[in-house]
Amino acid sequence: MKDLEKHALRFATKAHEGQLRKYTGEPYINHPIAVAAIVATVDHTPEMIAAAYLHDTVEDCGITLAEINERFGRKVATLVAYLSDISTPYHGNRVARKALDLQHTALAPSEAKTIKLADLIDNTKTISTLDPGFWQVYKVEKKNLLAVLKDGDPVLWEQAAAQCE
């Protein structure tokens, strides 16, 4: 593991300390670790792995993009920015917020789209089996995301799409 990746894993582990996964109760850091492991199975860079570890820190931990930029560089911060939702409750109901976030994701570089595909793959594993009711909502949102994630890794895109069948 390269230094950038190790630093990102340590930082994300500390940022997510005490957080638990909604459906499994396991330490939350297991999700970013799983996302990074999925990204590592396809063509990737150290910055992509670092961003995979850090992808939920802005949304869930109160970490700023400026801090990510300062600690990990502009490339990682840019990827994390594209992986972070931009909507807030001010933007309306879930449908309106997800539409705004979808537009943001559509503009992402292919590296961020690859990480987002890995995120979807890992999230689907728990949501589809442990919350069948929400899965119906999430599946529609995921299909909408898949339409704008075609520039991501094709192997991961196929895996993510297969989960919706």
Rank of each mutant, 00 (worst) to 15 (best):
T41P: 08
S87R: 02
K143E: 15
A40T: 09
G18V: 04
A40I: 08
A52F: 06
Q163H: 14
I33A: 12
E165K: 12
P46R: 01
A66W: 11
I68T: 00
R71H: 03
L107K: 15
A8D: 00
T78N: 09
Q163I: 10
D85K: 14
K75F: 07
E165N: 13
L79M: 01
A162M: 10
L120N: 09
T124G: 13
A12Q: 03
Q159E: 14
C164E: 15
A50G: 01
K113C: 04
Q19W: 07
I68W: 00
S84K: 03
I63A: 07
L79D: 00
T13V: 07
P46N: 03
D119P: 06
A108K: 01
P89E: 02
D3W: 07
L20Q: 09
L100I: 14
L117Q: 04
T24L: 01
P27K: 01
D101R: 00
A37Y: 11
V137D: 09
L130R: 15
A96V: 07
I68V: 10
N30V: 11
L100E: 05
A12T: 01
P27L: 03
G92L: 01
T64M: 06
I127Q: 03
I127W: 05
V39G: 10
D43Y: 11
K6L: 14
H7I: 10
C164P: 09
A40S: 15
A112Q: 02
R94K: 08
E158W: 10
N144D: 15
F134D: 09
A162F: 08
C61M: 01
E158M: 11
R97G: 00
F11R: 05
P109W: 09
D153G: 08
D60V: 08
P32L: 05
E165M: 11
E165L: 13
Q19E: 07
P89M: 01
A160T: 02
T57G: 03
I86N: 00
L79N: 04
Y138A: 06
A51Q: 00
K142E: 14
I49G: 05
A34P: 08
R94C: 06
E17R: 10
Y82E: 02
K142W: 12
L65C: 06
L120A: 11
A108F: 01
I63F: 04
V39R: 06
Q136Y: 08
K98L: 13
V140R: 13
Y82W: 05
A66T: 12
L156R: 04
V155F: 10
K22E: 14
L156A: 01
S87Y: 00
T105P: 06
N69M: 09
S84E: 02
V155E: 14
R94I: 12
D151E: 14
L9V: 09
G92S: 02
R97S: 03
E67Q: 05
K139S: 10
V58E: 03
E141W: 14
V148A: 06
T41H: 09
G73N: 02
R21E: 13
A99P: 05
Y138L: 04
A66V: 11
K113G: 06
K6F: 10
H44V: 03
Y138F: 13
P154D: 11
K125N: 12
A118R: 05
P46Y: 00
P27Q: 04
I33E: 13
